[in-house]
Design a protein around this nucleic acid. Sequence first.
RNA 1: CGGGGUAUAGCGUAGUCCGGUUAUCGCGCCACAUUUGGGAUGUGGAGGUCGUAAGUUCGAAUCUUACUACCCCGACCA
Length: 490
Amino acid sequence: MAKDFVTRAENYSEWYNELVVRADLAENSSVRGCMVIKPYGYAIWEKMQHTLDKMFKDTGHQNAYFPLFIPKSFFEKEAEHVEGFAKECAVVTHHRLAKSPDGKGLIPDPNAKLEEELIVRPTSETIIWDTYRKWIKSYRDLPILCNQWANVVRWEMRTRMFLRTAEFLWQEGHTAHATRQEAEAEAIKMMHVYADFAEKYMAMPVVRGIKSANERFAGAVETYCIEAMMQDGKALQAGTSHFLGQNFAKAFDVKFLSKENQLEYVWATSWGVSTRLMGALIMTHSDDNGLVLPPYLAPIQVVIVPIFKTDEEKSQIDAIANDAIEKLSSKGITVKYDDDEKTKPGWKFNEYEFKGVPVRVTLGARDLKEDKVEVFRRDTCEKEIIHKDEIVAKAEELLKAIQDNLYKKALDLRTSKTRNVDTWEDFKVEIEKGGFLMCHWDGTPETEEKIKEETKATIRCIPIDAPTEEGKCIYTGKPSHRRVIFARNY
RNA sequence: CGGGGUAUAGCGUAGUCCGGUUAUCGCGCCACAUUUGGGAUGUGGAGGUCGUAAGUUCGAAUCUUACUACCCCGACCA
């Protein structure tokens, strides 16, 4: 069991911070607010990237790359967009360093001040729409379905690894369409792509929904989202997809000639998920013994640990291990044979358990005398003794079972922490217990704002499948036609 | 940006109030030996501008001042 490791019940946020470091996912860097993603953590992100990238390509998108720097004036063009991002921008003012007058160190060269400051992108709508203007002349140029994998910078006051850092990695899709219907359909489609990814690969159940006006992306007409619940009952926005209407087309003057020979503004969407998904993954499945990874995203799916005393024993184990590795690999399973003699078996058990490797196979000289091996599954920490010829079949079976079990466990937790609340008195009590509160709301930003001020809870989303149900707003008592999700969030 | 706190080896720390030999302990690290089925044990060893700068003093980790960084609580946010 994990030594000196705080439990979730003791201190959830400390548990998270320590887990990220001890599982070798990331660490704080010397740069304020910025983290170093370590190889093991990055390997998980790469698996997410590859899977998502394929899903984007399968839905007709292409990757491209736009500049890191954005002229300040671009941000001024879309009023709501400026409002949303101005407060957290890193600004480049000079293009050269010079020796400081006192001879110690460097200062920005006063003679190298930029004519126009550059903003390190917090998001790329502006530079992209400035570019799209040049690409789009006719309906024949549409749609444009681009995605870019990039880093972005948002100057946050308080940061937490993966959940909120000043610089983070993400993908941002930016599409341009001839009609409103097509753009809306695109935004909704990408929300579903994200939801499929979250549920099938991350084994993380999500609610597909629409953001309230207060929570909407700066510059969007409608923001669709996938919303997840962490083990402590707090909500986490895992992905967003925006229908941007013609806001950016108008701001950047992007028009096209339609089939009817009419000059019209282009319709837009943008959508993104970030390394924040790493935080979501961690907080959805991990336990007091460390990280727990869903098999589809685990950099190592099966680890084989040999236990031996003599060279003969080692060579017998090697033969069995190599055979298993070959067969597992041929089935696309990532396997690591850890016969490193610098660490002992007991240490390895704890190490791989803490790093969330789904399946461990122990090849011990003792069991092998009876042709047996031990297999261990990370999600339940159960061990089983099987015949050595069953290793491959068992590993396949367990990986599938773990993937399914993790999803089910997360869904059960979410279900148990989701409930209807109908009075303001109950709301104030229930919100303290965490989880999702399904409540009626009068639909006004003012009411949402007041509820936020009084309870720190916000509307996470209006679920897209929310059934019509007549009721009264939890706060004002005004009529409402469906329940929305209230929760505290990350 | 407001309020509070911390800074001693890679990490975690004692010592600071009340200045006085060679700065404490644990983990980790290195070597050797014995070990290996849930984070081994013993012996030996390496590792420090005590956050930075200035000041007080015969003498500063310890007292004074300024600065810097980080953490917690607010405001802000994916």
